[in-house]
Simulated scan of single mutants.
Amino acid sequence: MPTVEVGDLKDGDFLLDVREDDEWQAGHAEGALHIPLSEFVGRYGELTEAAPQDGRVHVICRSGGRSAQVTMYLVQQGVDAVNVDGGMQIWAAVGRPVVQDDGRPGFVA
């Protein structure tokens, strides 16, 4: 499974958050695309429209399990995708910003 450490992500890397709505509302990475795992297959077109044509898709969830499933699916579809190891828990633990939709500070639920 292709993976990347949170610390290796750069500003501007395309991030796909596959957590559920309540987790997203509590807090997420600014600029991430949100498509919950439970809706992913039906909303796959949103990813193809939003993802950079020549870039990598970094898939994140709370701890890395759900994002691993989506990463494997994307790789099978020929997408350059990697799982963000440790997910949003590590994201927050290393001090990366977590925000709510209105820009206020958020938390990882």
Rank of each mutant, 00 (worst) to 15 (best):
V79D: 03
D13E: 13
V82R: 14
V82Q: 12
S67E: 04
G55Y: 06
A109R: 01
R66H: 10
Y73H: 09
A51Q: 14
G64M: 15
V59H: 05
A29H: 05
Q69C: 05
E46V: 01
K10A: 07
W24M: 13
F14V: 07
M88Y: 01
H34L: 14
D22L: 14
V4L: 02
C61E: 03
P52G: 13
G78T: 07
V108S: 01
V79N: 06
T48Y: 05
C61W: 03
P36T: 13
L74N: 08
M1C: 07
V4T: 04
V79T: 15
Q25L: 10
D54P: 00
V84M: 06
P52N: 10
R104D: 10
G27N: 11
G87F: 11
L33H: 08
A109N: 04
V84S: 05
V75M: 11
A68C: 02
T48R: 13
P2I: 06
D102C: 04
S38T: 14
R96V: 07
R66V: 15
A51C: 12
L16F: 04
A51G: 11
E39W: 01
L37D: 04
R43S: 04
I60D: 10
V99M: 00
P105V: 07
G27F: 09
D8R: 10
I35S: 08
G86A: 10
V98Y: 03
G95T: 08
M1V: 14
E49R: 06
Y73C: 00
G42F: 10
L15M: 10
V98M: 05
G86Q: 12
C61R: 07
I90Q: 15
E49W: 01
A81C: 10
T71W: 04
G12K: 03
R104V: 01
H28L: 07
R96D: 07
D85H: 15
G42C: 01
G45I: 04
R62E: 03
